[in-house]
Design a protein around this nucleic acid. Structure first.
Length: 804
DNA sequence: AGCACGCCGACT
DNA sequence: GTCGGCGTGCTC
């Protein structure tokens, strides 16, 4: 009986986005499973692939079918659930199946392809230049020949059949092993060895004697050096006498540097208990119900999660907790680790490839029961999921911006249906989509109206910066904010200042000719960074040092415009020279662990003012913070995006929530040039309801979600004309295919019309019900993508885009 | 995608 | 007569 495997190969291209049949060699038949990774010959090369189905026959003619060349996993890396989920993702987000499969695994398991040149004949037949490269080895990386400019010689040798080129498939990451010392488990042998050591070798004698009290143990060399007061040379010598051996032991890399204390549950308020009961009931009844937990800042949503998870673990099931990347602070993860200890794995982008792999393995091997992580943790390979939680449900980081463009919320709900378990979407400011669904009873709404410790919400004051300007205050601090800061400094309370920008100045301008420094690759002005004296592009990373004269007119009247965190810091130190300021932005948190360090320092009271960007809006929970200042609420309001009002309201509410979370009352000062805008006006009372009503009205009028669905098509090319032409062609084609209830807007140049040297055009599709949309878009890709790629056109499709 | 195959023009 | 350009088509 023959066994045939259907394999999805690691080639992301439309024509090969389907399973290929391979024969399973006899020695693999009992080991291979669906979800195993395999190495297969594909055309002239070797690639990695995933087994998606095993069957006993095939329609492929015998002369065409090839065997699997290697099985990479004894245990499959993907479950049947994941294989199903990948098919769904492929359809739902219009991506390649291989991309959908790869996104579920840590990057360490991805393939690394290397071209190797192997010697086939006597080395003496090669020209001198090639002989040198080979040296003593018979296999050399192709890159070496490229580096040394020997491609012509190589080609010649290839024609003469002296060498062959082969593609080697390797795995990116590996299991970490440590070298340990295994002490001989025979006491008598140790005694005998000790007796044979010459009296001159005192240290060796001592070590063997020490080993006699550790018979059969495995110990790290460093521990031995310390405890037995000895050195590596002595240990080497003793090992050569046979008293111990070196062994290699598999370990998990440990991303946690500090241990946490075990903590007990907190008492719940009535509201919290009611919410918890409903969730637990749903869990017990194995319902795939989606809850929207709408609780104001400080209402104790996390405590509800923790107790629900505890119930879930009691039932012998696993829990997945998703948090936005930015709020994956130690404060948050510690809270989970202090409740569930070693049962928690943490996954976020701050971990190294190896650390991510190990956290994934803990889940895969069933060593942990709870995962706390960013977006991709929604794919945690648990097999018996009891609850899935998305904290700060409205956050845009839950949507992946490149293929597969999935939303973690949708994946969570899919998995909840598979496992018959509830999903909890938690937020103080839910996305309009989710709240609308809750109102329509698609989701079950749970509300927490009061703060857990009964503290009142902070008082919010909106300051009109236009008035300040009229009264002659040209600084970036209003008088009101300055007074408040003064008061806190005197009372030794802490202040958080929030600025929605980084860098020193937004742009660099020549005062004589008005030239603004621009990025070479993108249509974006460069941002001045004071610490490095450089001008950087925040989109592609391009940077130049600050020019002494204008590149256009050579005038030396160069000025820096706009406000960034560095400039605020400078002004702060002028206004309040005694205040200790900590700055937290992308620049000061580049180094691994810097994020934690800054927060820790602020929490310990080492500074009076924390000044930062987006990243301080979440998760900060220190009792001594009593003042929050928002320097300019407008920055996010004027973005060309239909969600800008929602984003602004969410941000203001989140930031305000940082103040007065404990005994001391909090105060918030919001500075703005548009105090009359409803997103700002309504954030004063921090009431979600009125904002929701108002924003829904706007969405209805403008035809945006949740009233309509959106799809965004983007066409880009290095040449403007090409990009525009093909964007036009695309829109024309779509208009001819889609029905009249679908409106197609565009093509228009994208917000940032040139990015990384490509001009971008986009069109927006708005629809209510259009069953043909996905098939039509797939047809568009099928008909045109591979053809256009040869012309340099990149066509991308984003269903339910978060930003437009 | 990435590679071989094949056809055509420029050179030893 | 051979080398290398890139258009075409296939990958179990």
């Amino acid at each position: 009986m023959t066994l045939v495997a259907e394999v999805i190969v690691d080639v992301a291209a439309y024509p090969v986005d389907r399973p290929f049949d391979y024969l399973v060699p006899d020695d693999m038949t009992t080991l291979i499973e669906c979800g195993s990774r395999v190495k297969v010959p594909f055309g002239p090369r070797n690639v990695l692939g995933f087994v998606v189905l095993l069957k006993e026959s095939t329609d492929i003619p015998l002369e065409k079918i090839k065997p699997v060349s290697q099985l990479l996993d004894i245990e499959p890396v993907l479950t049947n659930e994941m294989l199903e989920l990948a098919k769904w993702l492929k359809h739902e987000t219009i991506c390649y199946e291989i991309d959908a499969l790869q996104v579920m695994l840590p990057s360490a398991l991805r393939a690394k392809y290397e071209k190797m040149v192997t010697l086939q004949a006597d080395i003496e037949l090669l020209p001198q230049s090639l002989k040198e490269i080979f040296g003593n080895s018979s296999k050399v990386n192709y890159k070496e020949f490229e580096k040394n400019n020997l491609l012509h010689e190589l080609k010649h040798a290839l024609n003469e059949k002296l060498v062959v080129i082969e593609n080697v498939v390797k795995q990116k990451g590996n299991v970490k092993e440590v070298r340990k010392v295994q002490i001989c488990n025979d006491l008598n042998k140790l005694l005998e060895i000790q007796n044979h050591i010459s009296n001159r070798a005192k240290k060796q004698k001592q070590l063997v004697e020490w080993m006699q009290s550790h018979v059969g143990e495995t110990i790290e060399p460093n521990t031995i050096y310390e405890e037995a007061n000895t050195s590596s040379q002595v240990l080497q010598a003793v090992i050569s006498l046979g008293a111990a051996t070196f062994i290699h032991e598999e370990v998990y890399r440990d991303p946690f540097t500090k241990k946490v204390e075990k903590k007990d549950f907190l008492d719940l308020t009535d509201e919290q208990s009611t919410a918890l009961e409903k969730i637990v009931l749903s869990m017990k009844q194995k319902q795939s119900e989606t809850f929207l937990l709408h609780g104001i800042t400080g209402s104790g949503k996390t405590e509800v999660y923790l107790q629900a998870i505890s119930q879930c673990l009691n039932d012998g099931k696993e829990a997945i907790v998703l948090v936005p990347e930015i709020s994956l602070t130690p404060q948050m993860t510690e809270r989970f680790r202090s409740r569930f200890g070693e049962l928690v794995a943490v996954m976020h982008s701050g971990l190294s490839v190896g650390e991510k792999y190990d956290e994934w393995r803990k889940v895969h091997e069933g060593k942990v029961k709870v995962v706390v992580g960013a977006r991709s943790a929604v794919f945690a390979p648990f097999e018996n999921v009891g609850i899935i939680i998305l904290d700060e449900e409205h956050e845009s980081t839950y949507k992946q911006e490149d293929s597969p463009r999935y939303h973690a919320r949708d994946v969570a709900i899919w998995r909840s249906k598979f496992h018959h378990c509830p999903v909890i979407l938690g937020s103080a400011t839910p996305s309009l989509e989710s709240f609308a669904r809750a109102k329509k009873n698609v989701y079950t709404l749970l509300t927490l109206r009061e703060r857990a410790l009964k503290q009142s919400l902070p008082t919010v004051q909106v300051v009109d910066m236009r008035e300040e300007l009229q009264k002659g205050n040209r600084s970036m601090f209003s008088r009101s904010l300055m007074e408040s800061i003064e008061v806190r400094l005197q009372k030794k309370e802490q202040i958080v200042l929030f600025l929605n920008r980084r860098g020193y100045s937004s742009f660099v301008l020549c005062r004589d000719c008005g030239t603004v420094l621009q990025c070479e690759n993108c249509d974006i002005s460069l941002t001045y960074h004071r610490s490095s004296e450089k001008c950087k592009c925040h989109y592609c990373g391009y940077e130049i040092s600050v020019p002494k004269s204008c590149p256009q007119c050579e005038s030396d009247h160069i000025r820096f415009f706009g406000t960034g965190t560095q400039k605020v810091e400078e002004e702060l130190s002028k206004l309040f020279p005694e205040a200790r300021v900590l700055r937290m932005d992308v620049d000061t948190t580049k180094v691994k662990g810097a994020h934690e360090q800054i927060l820790q320092a602020f929490g310990d009271g080492q500074a009076d003012i924390l000044l930062g960007t987006q990243m301080i809006a979440k998760g900060l929970d220190y009792p001594n913070i009593t003042l929050v200042g928002v320097l300019s609420a407008d920055t996010s309001l004027h973005l060309p995006d239909f969600r800008s009002a929602e984003k602004t309201f969410q941000l203001l509410t989140q930031v305000s929530g940082r103040a007065g979370r404990h005994e001391k009352a909090g105060e918030v000062v919001i500075q703005t040039y548009t105090p009359e805008h409803y997103a700002i006006e309504l954030s004063k009372s921090q009431e979600y309801g009125p904002f929701y009503e108002r924003e829904m009205l706007m969405r209805h009028q403008a035809g945006y979600p949740p009233y309509y669905y959106l799809a965004l098509i983007q066409v880009s090319h290095e040449d403007v004309m090409m990009a525009a032409e093909y964007a036009g062609k695309t829109v024309e084609w779509l208009r001819s295919k889609l029905s009249f209830n679908v409106s197609i807007i565009g093509p228009t140049a994208s917000g940032i019309s040139r990015l990384q040297n490509r001009y971008r055009y986009q069109c927006l599709i708005k629809y209510k019900i259009e069953p043909d949309l996905i098939p039509t878009l797939m047809q568009l890709i099928k008909l045109y993508r591979s053809d256009w790629i040869k012309k340099g056109i990149i066509l991308s499709v984003d269903l339910d885009p978060t930003m437009i």
